[in-house]
């Protein structure tokens, strides 16, 4: 059972009378990381919540490899502010492994493997809610990997981290991508986007204005808003 390709067709979302996403058409396929970029409030997080199946569109539809059942199969998400369970670091992981259907006898081994990967093995018995910001993101990342995802959705995972924690997380992301996990990630850090992105989806006021390879997007953005965004202007006009 695969979750890819993920397709949005004519997806719109409004809260009350306020439109948040408008007529989004997008297909996310296996391959290099796809980055959702755009100014604050442009709808990046909302789009990722749709991709994860956490909310239902007001109109239009979303499917994962043809299935419209929003229950997560081979996908996982790391939120910008991950919520960790009130348990130890290791218990957070075994919980996720359990939910992902990993046999009890294999959970401890897999848990240690994941903690090792993200560099939290020494903190296995710490209460998860006492971790630092960078450690939290690493644990949330490991928890997402516990689902052995094909599609890994990341919502500005480094937004509040210092440079060394950002670097550590970017390395984890690169490794995951190299192992064939499709990354769908929101970011407004253009340096990071240059370092990691294969394709770019540029969102502005709830609309997709551009879908392009990272190279094309940075060399010749097609919309005035994207050019302004790349120059670092504050874009306010439609």
């Amino acid at each position: 059972m695969s979750d890819l390709p993920l397709s949005f067709s004519k997806v719109s979302y409004a809260v009350g009378a306020t439109p948040i996403l408008r007529d989004v058409d997008l297909v996310v396929r296996a391959g290099a990381p796809t980055f959702i970029i755009g100014p604050n409030g442009s709808g990046k997080s909302t789009l990722l919540r749709f991709a994860m199946g956490l909310i239902a569109p007001t109109s239009g539809m979303i499917d994962w490899n043809g299935s419209r059942d929003p229950a997560p199969r081979r996908r996982a998400i790391v939120f910008q502010h991950p919520v960790l369970l009130r348990r130890s670091v290791a218990a957070n992981l075994t919980y996720a492994l359990d939910q992902a259907g990993v046999e009890k006898s294999k959970q401890d081994g897999r848990c240690a493997q994941l903690l090792e990967l993200v560099g939290l093995l020494d903190l296995a018995d710490r209460p998860a809610r006492r971790l630092s910001g960078g450690e939290r993101q690493k644990l949330a990342f490991a928890r997402a990997l516990a689902r052995t995802p094909e599609l890994l959705i990341l919502d500005e995972p480094t937004a509040s981290l210092d440079p060394s924690a950002t670097l550590a997380l970017e390395q984890l992301i690169t490794t995951a991508a190299r192992e064939g996990i499709k990354i769908l990630m929101a970011s407004h850090d253009l340096g990071q986007v240059r370092r990691l992105a294969g394709d770019i989806v540029f969102l502005h006021r709830g609309r997709i204005l551009e879908v392009a390879s990272a190279k094309d997007f940075f060399e010749q953005p097609r919309s005035a808003q994207a050019s302004a965004f790349l120059r670092g202007d504050l874009i306010t006009e439609d």
């Binding site: 919540r49 994860m52 956490l54 229950a71 997560p72 996982a76 998400i77 939120f79 991950p82 919520v83 369970l85 919980y95 996720a96 939910q99 992902a100 689902r147």
Partner: peptide, 12 residues
């Protein structure tokens, strides 16, 4: 309300 998204994302 705090856990909803995370638990749903794990298919609980």
């Amino acid at each position: 309300s705090e856990y909803r998204d995370e638990l749903n994302a794990m298919g609980v």
